[in-house]
Nucleic acid binder design. Structure first.
Lengths: 340, 340
DNA sequence: CTAATCACCCAAAACGTTTTGGGCAACACC
DNA sequence: GGTGTTGCCCAAAACGTTTTGGGTGATTAG
């Protein structure tokens, strides 16, 4: 049996220190007014009795459990929770967890809490971080109806007025990549984006269109499901090969697509960087280890995660919602696929 | 302000359904004896009121919050929480999280809960999974003194009688690798292990010594800190190069060491697999992408994680402790570095 | 007919905190 | 001498459940 030892309670500390439980609570939390001598005595006896406040009881009363929840939305739509090579989310989760701990919170990894069989503890979190919500995300509806604070990583484009979000400065990054391609000699730049209606895809496309129209270039946009992996990348390659006026550069958002794309083009005798420049919007094992290695944006999920946790914690502390901020500008890693 | 909406309580459901709160609790949990008609009515009104039980309140009373904690011990000793290329732990955490959800639990990622500034919510978990505890791990002491159920992945070798653990069948895996090397022509097989006093290192060394003595080969053992990465692997290579009677095969436990080792040897003109066979005990980005790719054991952290969660949940349910079991035999991925 | 059993239900206690709403001196000000 | 004010402390209520320990009326057993 899992019989728990009797942990010492606040009552025992109070008795031992000769004060009321109120005073113990105040002395330990630093909230009320307690004489310095009393506080010292309380703290001392608490330590002697190895007193650790029961977080659940405290959470019930104060409505603050000390747990943040993280929902990685894109993974809810995938068949497997952790597709190989998708290290972005893993790095994000790890950094978020560590950052939460530094802020005095635990971090709970959840999948879609709107599912009927979601554990009821899901909604016990003090606040939620939701990465890359879909448009009009039902998870956000649920949390708002329950009054649970939340922050999204990547804007929910269906909610124009909604302010608690943070994301990489996608427009800036897109421009940086496109400029880089142009500087390296590209005259017809295409983009390959995913099909999810999230901020990353949509903002990238918009920035790309702006960039094109500023140059009088006609936009060349190929789409492919995020989940399709390197195979989907090959399909993108196929599509490019069939074009009459083939682009000489591609900005391909996901790393796995970029790797598949490069492989397919190479088979058809279209080499990178000689015949086509390739940049991926997200660094991954595939971009690092293709031949040649593929230039990519390191979206710095650690930076983003820390910013998200910090903003959410601030929000929990009563500070008004974040007004939507750039978590990171990303780090452009130039490799062989885009420079000659 | 983060003012929560008033969530409907069990009391409101009781009033609306015309029964007592006791009956509502029983009807929803299926515990007491409730007339079928009453139960149906209660369930119906609960649904109508969008009632969701407050997990914190329920947790306080029943001493079961519905949260499992995961402590990845090796990461506590590293400077950075998530060193690049260490995907074993990330895969483990992801799979454990998903598996916990399937069992109706949330999963909280924690670092060392014995640290003084660990959030107090850490100890609110119903049970702990601790991966690769060190010898006489203080985290286990803390949890045992608090009476919190736990299960370790990898045995704590300082606790002979302790039964709640699970691990890969290290002895079997070691033998499989060594036999494979022998079959591919190796006559002098060395091993390179880490310095942490955990089950993986120690059991591997013991199995290796057995294997050697069965063949009358003298053991050749090189050690290197886990944290040293590919640089540490190069140091291992250095050490091998300096030996008068150089081994013709190495079983190197960590993937990053193996990659560094291979790179250093190649520089010295010792090529793999021609001059030396190399197998890594843990698959990683580095083993997959070395040239030639390095044979490795996929420890299948997903399998291990699922087994660990299942065993812990069973233990929480009152089933006596797991008697120490093999979570996985691993999957031996033979690549170019060990076959000719 | 009485006693025992059973199915169903409930009021109140309990879980361990935090928060509310004072109380009581001591001291200061008019 | 009253009237605030301040510093320190406390008893009790409250958080929303689950669990305890019956109670009641109907049915069955003796």
């Amino acid at each position: 049996m899992t019989q728990r030892n009797a942990r010492s309670t606040i009552r025992e500390v109070a008795r031992e220190a000769g004060v009321s439980v109120t005073t113990v609570s105040h002395a330990l939390s630093g909230k009320g007014i307690v004489a310095e001598a009393t506080r010292a005595r309380v703290i001392d006896t608490a330590r002697r009795l190895r007193y650790r406040p029961n977080a659940v009881a405290s959470g019930l009363r104060s409505n603050r459990l000390g747990i943040l929840a993280l929902v990685l939305r894109p993974l809810d739509t995938l068949e497997s929770f952790l597709p190989e090579g998708v290290d972005y989310f893993l790095r994000f989760a790890g950094a978020a967890s560590l950052s939460a701990l530094e802020h005095g919170y635990g971090l709970m990894l959840l999948s879609d809490p709107t599912l009927p069989d979601a554990p009821s503890v899901s909604l016990a979190a003090d606040g939620f971080i939701i990465t890359e919500p879909v448009e009009n995300d039902p998870v956000i509806d649920l949390l708002q109806s329950e009054g649970i604070p939340l922050l999204t990583v990547g804007k929910d484009l269906g909610r124009a007025d909604y302010a608690a979000w943070i994301e990489p400065s996608t427009a800036k990054i897109t421009k940086q990549v496109l400029d880089h391609l142009e500087e390296n000699g590209a005259r017809r730049v295409a983009i390959a984006i995913g099909t999810d209606r999230n901020s990353w895809n949509i903002t990238t496309e918009a920035s790309y269109r702006d960039w094109c129209s500023a140059r009088g270039q006609e936009p060349i946009i190929v789409t492919q499901m995020e989940t399709s992996g390197t195979l989907g990348g090959r399909a993108i390659g196929e599509e490019l090969l069939s074009m009459t006026d083939r682009p000489d550069a591609v900005y391909c958002l996901t790393g796995r697509h970029a790797a598949g794309l490069m492989a397919r083009l190479a088979e058809a005798g279209v080499a990178s960087p000689a015949d086509i420049l390739i940049v991926a919007g997200s660094d991954s094992e595939q971009t690092r280890n293709s031949v040649p290695p593929i230039s990519a944006i390191d979206l710095e999920p650690e930076v983003l995660a820390r910013a998200a946790v910090a903003a959410l914690v601030e929000q929990l502390g009563g500070v008004p919602k974040n007004d939507g901020g750039a978590g990171t500008d990303g780090r452009f890693i130039v490799r062989g696929s885009s420079s000659r």
